Amino acid sequence: MTAWKKKEKELTKEEAIEQARAANLPFWFGCSPKFVIYRAEGRKASVFPLDKDFDEFSWMITILNPSTFSGQKMISFTREMQKRYHVNNVKFLVVIPSFYTYLKDRTAIEAIIRRHQITCPVAVDPDYLICEAFDVKKLPAIAVVNKREVLYSHSGDGWNEKPEEELQKHLRSTDPGLALLPLFKEQSGELSADVHIMDLGRGRNVKYPEPGFKPLEDKPGTGYAEFKGDRPQVMKEGEFFIKGKWHQDGDRIFTRDKEAEIGFCCPHPGLSLVAQSMEKTYEMAKVVIDLDGAPAFEVFGSEDLTFDEEGQSCIKADTTRLYHAFKSIPPGKTQITLRFTAAERTSVGLHGIRIIR
């Protein structure tokens, strides 16, 4: 027998929009939700505006992973475009898909906004529906939109080559004599993009020595492994070495083993790590980084490289983020070793490794 249920009142358009706005508010920062994503059965996700701004203005939408060098470079590009074109009533939006679990956390997103001085609205894309609606094939991605029409879009490498040119073309389509700045050019000699991204969590792109991580019955979603063996004296590009006692979940690997090591070859000048301290007290975790078996020279270092009391080159991590260790490693197939000498006291979590050209 089916229980009788009072028929729900059909919402007006205004009530439905207000309900959608309230439901999506936790995923937007710096403004109320500008649009919502909906998907009719069997169809691609689509954008439905919740704010007249999205229908009335031109927008540059940048979709990025802030735990990659390319994603952070896109944030800087967005800031530059905003400075140049806000006077032309162009609006800007940064979209952050939840590539890692921490990117669903409001506190973490607020920290990213502060750290990178993002002044335009930010939207989190927990289910990748915004990516689907804008046909994103690879991150980072960018779209120039006018009154819901996508005028230009690009995914992956080369994302910064044409969007400003296309935006200027659009602005001059209604005002041919509009005075605009020369196209922005990056300074030569800067690091440009991630070459090799290693993501260390379960089911991601790093293959571990057999038998790999064994699931822990008392901790669903977590695995454990003890890796043994000697590191090859010379590792080739793309090879990965790991030693010691490690745990793994869907986002990261983590250890309390002070003898643990990770090794790989870095043939490019830049190296960054997505790392964190696993301690609830936010005690800093230390990752010692050796280049060709020795501490690095300070001149090779980037903003997060430091040196401990023993003269070892290292990064010290607290909250989860991308830590920039090196920006000018000398040319060649440099052998990198990550060591975790203080892990017994402060457990270290590693989400990923970024090699940057």
Rank of each mutant, 00 (worst) to 15 (best):
E303T: 13
D249L: 07
Q312I: 11
Q335R: 00
G332Y: 06
T78N: 15
I17D: 09
Q312W: 14
L183D: 10
A342E: 15
G332D: 07
T346Q: 04
G349W: 00
Y85I: 05
D251G: 03
T341Y: 15
K228E: 15
Y282F: 14
E41P: 07
H351Q: 11
N205L: 07
G349T: 01
P211S: 07
E226F: 10
I355C: 05
N89Y: 11
P126F: 04
D199E: 15
K169L: 12
I109D: 00
Q248W: 00
G332N: 07
K83G: 12
V195A: 08
S67I: 11
L11D: 05
E110L: 10
I17E: 13
T319L: 14
R252F: 07
I109Q: 01
Q276R: 13
T101W: 05
D55R: 13
S76G: 14
K44L: 10
A23V: 09
V274Q: 00
F297E: 13
K258D: 15
K34V: 14
K83E: 15
R148K: 13
L291G: 03
Q168H: 06
K52C: 13
K219P: 08
Y128R: 13
A325C: 02
R172Q: 12
L271E: 01
K316Y: 14
S313Q: 03
A294V: 10
F326I: 08
V348P: 01
R106A: 15
I75F: 02
P140K: 01
V95W: 00
K137V: 06
E237F: 11
